[in-house]
Amino acid sequence: MVLEKELETYKNNKERLLKEANGKYVLIKDIEIIGVFESENDAINMGTKKFGNSPFLVKKISEVDETQTYWSGLVTIGR
């Protein structure tokens, strides 16, 4: 799965991140938390600066993950 290691890292550190930085954005590469940022764009730009065109995770630190709903029937899932 894409960004599997990074998502696992977030999950393993979620409790601490919620206490310390709820609502902010964490930048994770593999098993390492690179930093926490006030803005999502700052986190993304730092990730690009450090890692170029390689996968990294930028995630909003929150109790419940954001989801997206597509109402118009133009998007489907899986195959």
């Binding site: 993304i44 990730g47 390689s54 709903t69 899932i77």
Partner: peptide
């Protein structure tokens, strides 16, 4: 474009729930 994802999100569609990679 040959670019890598920066996130994964859960999506809900008429066909059900799934995962989508997120790109910047």
């Amino acid at each position: 474009l040959g670019i890598e994802p920066i996130g994964v999100t859960t999506i809900f569609t008429a066909a059900g729930e799934g995962q989508a990679s997120v790109y910047f």
